[in-house]
Amino acid sequence: MSTLTSMRNARGSGRSGQLIGTLSVLAVVLLAWQFLPTALGTPSYVVPVLSDVLNALFDPEAFPRYLSNAGATMTEVLLGLGIGVALGLALAVTLAQLPRVYGVVFPYIVAIESIPKVAVAPLFVIWFGFGLPSKVVVVVLLAFFPVLVNTIHGLRSVDKDQIDLFRVNGASPLQLRMRLMIPAALPQIFSGLELAVANSMIGAIVAEFVGAQEGLGVLILQAQGRMETAAVFALLIILSALGIALNVLVRTVRKVVVNWEGR
C-alpha cells in the first residue's frame, strides 16, 4: 500500500512538474510577444506587442461589440453543432442496424468525408442568405461527418462475444442497442464530438468570412480592412478562448460519462 501511495505521489509531482513546464512556455511566449517586436523593429501593423493587443481587447468601446458578436458566432456554432451531432448519431445508429444499406452508402460517406466541406460555404450563402441559417447549415455539415463516421466505427467494433452474451440471455434488439452497442461506442462517439467541436468553429468563421452581417468572422474582416492588426489579434484571442472552452467542456463531460477509460 505504501508503495502504491508513493507511486501515486510520484505521478502527482510528475503531473504538477508538467504543468509548471507548460506554464513556463506560455510565460516565455508572452514575454517574447511583448518585447521581441520592439527589439527587432517589427512595425506594429505586422505584429503588435502584447500590451497593445490587450488594450484593443479590453477597449471599453469595442469590448461590448466583441461580446455581442461572439454571442452571434456561438449561436451559429451551438445550433449547428447540436443539429449536426443529433443527425450524425441518428444516422449512425440507423446504418449500424442495416448492414446492406451501409454497404451501399459507405463509399459516398468516404467521398464526402474527403472533400473540403468549407468550400461549399459560398453556395450555402447563395441558397440561404446572409443571416443565421447559412452559417448553421455549414456548421451542421462540418459537425455531422466526424460524429457519423466515428459512431459507426464504434458501433461496428463492439466485441462479438459481448453481442453473443446479450443474445444468449435473450436481449431484445432495443436492449442490445441501449445497454451494449451505444455505451460500448461512447469513447468513439466522444472522439467524433471533439472533432465536431473543432470543425464547428472553423465552419462558423469561414461562413462568416463568405458573407454575414454579424459574428467574430465579420469583425476580423472589418479590422483587417482598417489595418487594425491589434484588433485582429484581440478577436483571435476571443475566438481561441471560446474554442478551448468548448473543447475542455467536451473532454470534461467525456471523463464523467466514459469513466472506465484510460486506466
Binding site: D159, D161, Q162, L165, V168, L180, A184, L186, V258, W260
Partner: peptide, 12 residues
C-alpha cells in the same frame, strides 16, 4: 449460462 474466452464484462 455462457462463459467466453474473454471475460466480456461491461466496463461501465
Amino acid at each position: 449460462g455462457m462463459v467466453f474466452q474473454k471475460a466480456t464484462l461491461l466496463p461501465w
